[in-house]
Design a protein around this nucleic acid. Structure first.
Length: 427
DNA sequence: TCTGGGGTCCTAGGGCGA
DNA sequence: TCTGTCGCCCTAGGACCC
């Protein structure tokens, strides 16, 4: 099934930053080197990034911190709240370096990118990977691993091998022969295949698949009918047939702002205030990408982990009479939606809004019967400019002007690269 | 007591017009 | 005018990613 002629044309490189959040913290605080570190989610709730030393202690990804507090204390694990200003800035530095190596790049997430290496037939790709890795480390202090292969899914596998065997591979692994593909697939456990999550992994295990190689040997027709076209494409990609392409940067198709509350909320007024704030923030994101939206979805839920409490989970989608990016309009509709689903006596723990049906601001269908107040656009522009200059001084009337609520971030590091006050001073 | 957030894509099922 | 079929669109929900 696999055809090596594709090699003549191009290869994919996946460059992935090692333990990205922990590595960012270490760049500016070298005392964290060689120590176990964990980074916490918003509200300091879950562990979302771990250094290798923390992984070795058996601390799992996504674990709630309160369950591991004792272990963390015993081993003197360094705890940090997530500092997205820092990580975002470090990420853009890494990505700008990667763009020097090829114009064909897909920034896949905050810490990894696919590079299409087209016309590199005469290059020593292992050596090229080492150059990429070394330059990022030298210029940003962030360690990376590089996986190179004829397809995206295989470059993911190659990257995992490089990460697993740093001494043997020097952090770079190239899959460039049929035997390497077969061996790599047999080495990859079902649950570690990119695109196969826990549900599908269980189903495939029941079917007798132990590794990625077994998955690729399943009949395509069975995969299509029992799973979906997504897994069928993945199967081909794993076999070395380029099926998943480099995706160009597009405008977002949805914009979400959701938050877990520090304490459960029982009263609708507090929830309405939060929803108003989420609408305001989402409107800003919408205007930044120069879009309008057709639809708002609100969500409101109690704490699903507290089985002893009465549960309620509600979502409500509202089609807007006209596309808008006015925070005032978004807030009004979102609040009405919250009023329609709110139930008394429930301890609500999380709320949010999702904007979908996004269309470009300069090209959308008007409605003959309903239209936006023409004052909104200049008002929003003015608010955005003032908030950019003076850091969020203007709010909606139904937001909490004193901002009495605050996200829990007890272990926050300074914004070393994005705030003048926090720049490291050399004495 | 304390359990994240922001995305994408796909499928199924219903409504609806040709 | 009524009915069946097809395909498109919309929506909710699920699964996945980092």
């Amino acid at each position: 099934m696999f055809c090596f002629k594709h090699y003549i044309y191009f290869m994919f490189a996946l460059v992935d930053c090692n333990n990205f959040y922990a590595s960012c913290e270490r760049v500016f605080n070298p005392s964290l080197q060689h120590k176990p570190i964990v980074i916490l989610s918003n509200n300091d709730g879950c562990i979302i990034s771990r250094s290798d030393e923390a992984k070795e202690l058996g601390i799992p990804m996504g674990a709630p911190i309160f369950k591991y507090r004792k272990l963390l204390n015993t081993h003197n694990v360094q705890i940090l709240s997530s500092n997205y200003s820092l990580y975002g800035d470090m990420s853009s530095r890494v990505m700008s370096i990667l763009k020097q190596f090829t114009p064909d790049i897909q920034v896949y997430s905050i810490d990894e990118s696919f590079l299409k290496l087209d016309g590199f037939e005469n290059y020593d790709l292992t050596n090229y990977g080492v150059i990429i890795k070394d330059r990022i480390l030298k210029w940003t202090g962030i360690p990376t691993c590089v996986g190179i292969a004829p397809t995206k899914a295989l470059s993911k596998v190659a990257n995992k091998i490089a990460r697993k065997y740093p001494v043997e591979t020097n952090g770079v692994y190239v899959i460039d022969s049929e035997i390497k593909i077969t061996n790599a697939l047999k080495w990859t456990k079902i649950k570690d295949i990119w695109g196969i999550g826990s549900k599908l992994s269980n189903r495939l295990s029941m079917k007798g698949c132990k590794n990625a190689y077994d998955f690729t040997q399943l009949p395509e027709s069975w995969v299509k009918s029992n799973m979906s076209v997504v897994e069928s494409r993945l199967q081909r990609d794993l076999l070395g047939i380029p099926t998943l392409n480099l995706e160009v940067q597009k405008s977002k198709k949805s914009i979400a702002t959701t938050r877990t509350f520090e304490k459960p909320l029982f009263d609708i007024e507090s929830i309405k205030e939060r929803i108003s704030t989420f609408s305001f923030v989402s409107g800003e994101k919408l205007r930044r990408q120069k879009s309008h939206c057709h639809m708002i979805i609100i969500l409101l839920r109690s704490n699903s982990f507290r089985e002893d409490l009465k549960q309620h989970y509600a979502t409500k989608a509202i089609s807007l009479p006209y596309p808008t990016n006015s925070s005032l309009v978004l807030s009004n509709y979102a609040i009405k939606a919250i009023e329609s689903v709110f139930k008394k006596g429930i301890a609500y723990k999380k709320a949010g809004i999702i904007l979908t049906g996004l269309v470009p601001s300069n090209n959308y269908q008007l409605n003959i019967f309903d239209w936006e107040n023409s004052n909104h656009q200049p008002l929003m522009n003015a608010i955005d400019k003032i908030n950019y200059k003076f850091s969020n001084k203007i709010k909606l009337a139904n937001q909490d002007l004193k901002k009495t609520w605050k996200m829990k971030q007890d272990y926050l590091s300074p914004n070393y690269t994005t705030n003048l006050q926090d720049i490291i001073k050399v004495k």
